Amino acid sequence: MWTGVFPAVTTKFNADDTLDHAEMERCFALQMEAGCDGLIVCGSLGEGSMLSQDERLAVLKTAQGVAGGKPVLMTIAEAATRDSANLARKAAKAGADGFMVVPSTIYHTDPAETVATLKAVAEAGDLPVMIYSNRVAYRVDVTVPIMEDLAKDARFVAVKESSDDIRRATEILTHFGDRFDVFTGVDNLAFEALAVGCTGWVAGLVVAFPKETVAIYRLMQAGRTAEALAIYRWFRPLLDLDVSTYLVQNIKLAEVHALGSNDRCRMPRMPLSGERRAKVEKVIRDAIACRPALPAV
């Protein structure tokens, strides 16, 4: 149902901490112009947990306005299942094309609780669901046996595999075949994940470097792995910025240098400063200085 590059877009703020819809519209449009296949709003990179539900719905509307009919997914990630279900209902009413769902952000659910929560959200919103499996960040591992249970419900159509273990992607694909659309959710494992059969990439650094991200994906799908690998090797230092406690600040800083955007965050996050900022800026500037020419694909 879903394949390709789906940016996990950042949320833009004005200096007074209100939503900057004009800047989001500009940045989201760059993703579409580069050939991305959908958008995911209000995820971890989108600072969704720092936004009210009304703000998240407003970001969804802005994304829909520039998506050109491509799917726009709302991230559902609340502490309480009741609140997740409520947001799913609201997002469905607002026209979301589907959801990317985190089982729980604070309490670490056991397998039965994980299944019950994911099913409750799917039933509340009654739209296609991408299961977000991220045992590293959220400490809830959506395993193959759990997916077996969820596979009985046709609304579960995709998995964002972020376990940080490439073997998990292979296990899902081997066990389920084409039952789920399997996306990689770890930027610096993307080449490896696409090589073993994943057909989607929920990407982070794409928000600053959309053309390079799309080129890697399309070259891999075309079997032009050597060309994809050459770009990926250039990209790796940047992609590593996604695997960090400071991924939001890192990637927003990349947007500053690559797109002329800003790196305002919602507190308690604050833009990088001092030595940490200098190190990240060096990575970004060094990469931009030797940005590769992209082949036609």
Score class of each variant (00 low, 15 high):
Thr81Lys: 05
Ile40Pro: 03
Val207Pro: 01
Arg167Ala: 15
Ser244Gln: 01
Glu25Lys: 13
Val280Leu: 02
Ala92Lys: 10
Ala88Ser: 10
Gly204Lys: 01
Met24Ala: 08
Ala91Leu: 06
Leu87Arg: 04
His108Trp: 11
Phe28Glu: 03
Arg135Ser: 14
Asp149Cys: 10
Ser163Met: 03
Lys282Asp: 12
Ala34Lys: 00
Thr105Trp: 10
Ile106His: 14
Glu281Ser: 09
Glu212Gln: 14
Ala215Lys: 09
Cys198Phe: 07
Phe180Met: 09
Ala215Gly: 06
Val214Glu: 02
Val102Gln: 05
Leu150Cys: 02
Pro237Trp: 05
Cys42Ala: 15
Ile131Gly: 05
Ala22Gly: 13
Val136Arg: 08
Ala289Gln: 12
Ala151Cys: 10
Ile216Gln: 03
Gly204Cys: 07
Gln221Lys: 12
Gly95Ala: 03
Val115Leu: 04
Asp165Tyr: 04
Ile231Arg: 03
Thr3Gln: 14
Pro7Leu: 06
Cys27Glu: 15
Ala287Asp: 04
Ile131Cys: 06
Leu51Gln: 00
Thr170Gly: 13
Ala67Gly: 05
Arg291Tyr: 14
Gly204Asp: 03
Asp110Trp: 08
Pro7Gly: 07
Pro145Arg: 05
Glu161Gln: 12
Met24Ile: 08
Gly43Ala: 05
Thr62Cys: 11
Met74Ala: 13
His257Leu: 14
Ser104Ala: 14
Ala195Glu: 12
Ala112Asn: 13
Met50Thr: 10
Pro128Trp: 07
Ala278Glu: 15
Leu30Met: 15
Val159Leu: 15
Asn14Thr: 15
Ile106Gly: 06
Ala34Asn: 08
Leu239Trp: 00
Met50Ser: 15
Gln221Gly: 07
Ser162Tyr: 05
Ala293Phe: 08
Ser52Asn: 10
Tyr138His: 14
Val72Cys: 10
Asp97His: 11
Ala122Lys: 03
Asp17His: 03
Val129Met: 12
Val182Cys: 04
Val136Ile: 13
Asn188Phe: 04
Leu118Arg: 09
Leu127Pro: 06
Glu23Tyr: 00
Thr62Phe: 01
Phe156Glu: 08
Val129Trp: 06
Lys12Ile: 03
Ala208Cys: 02
Glu25Asp: 11
Ala77Cys: 06
Thr114Asn: 07
Val214Gly: 05
